[in-house]
Amino acid sequence: MRTDRRSLIAAMIRLARRPGLWLMVLLIAVIFLMPAAGPLMRWLFPGVPRPVYTRASFFELTLAHAELVAISSLAAAVIGIGFGIFVTRESGREFAPMAGAIAATGQTFPPVAVLALTIPVLGYGAAPAIAALCLYAIFPIIAATITGIESVPAPTRDAAMGMGFAPRDILWRIELPLAFPFILAGLRNAVIINIGTAAIGSAAGALSLGSPIIEGLSASNPAYVLEGAVIVALLAVAADRCFAWLEDLSRHGGLEQPG
């Protein structure tokens, strides 16, 4: 009983040390306290007539923003990981150099430019934003999946084959678990960039945390800009810390401690 309680306390301390957790708490607090920030904004920007953005609640904006990022990243993950697996199979090996080149070139495309290119094709609103975010996120995920699977040591794969692992077993039990930290890092990269690009997407009419920023910029209302910017920055940093946390968890004991 006693050891139970002690280990529980230890676990809670470990949890409390996670900045991701506190940032999430802070983010939620800021989202719900923002409507009460009127006096603060009035003090910061005395000349502003309406200090707090009210066209949509910040909770609504954050939810819409998260939705844009989540849908696009998830789709990109499915496509990117799938493609990464395909080009590392025997049947898809022919396409591996091409996939590498596309992933490398794709990552040099500025995300804003990708967003700008989808607008003429898909029009305004959430659809082009999601498509652009997804398109952009695919590249780092493909690159990460390929790197991850290729990082599996040749003797490991050889031993697995020699012991009678079927190709499917090798993929699911050896390659994907070993590639997971790499894929997670690629996903983290993509999600963080997407959080930023989704904000810019509101210039093209997608509802997101960028909406107050864009409106503030065009109406010369710095208070709106600051409100949107603070929340979207917090969202990005919190998401990043949460991914860091996941990466720590996914690392296997054997890889964590040297020797």
Partner: peptide
């Protein structure tokens, strides 16, 4: 292969 044991130089243990 499952009915034959197999050992290679660097052991090839699964690191995870």
């Amino acid at each position: 292969r499952r009915s034959i044991g197999y050992v290679i130089q660097s052991a090839g243990l699964f690191p995870h």
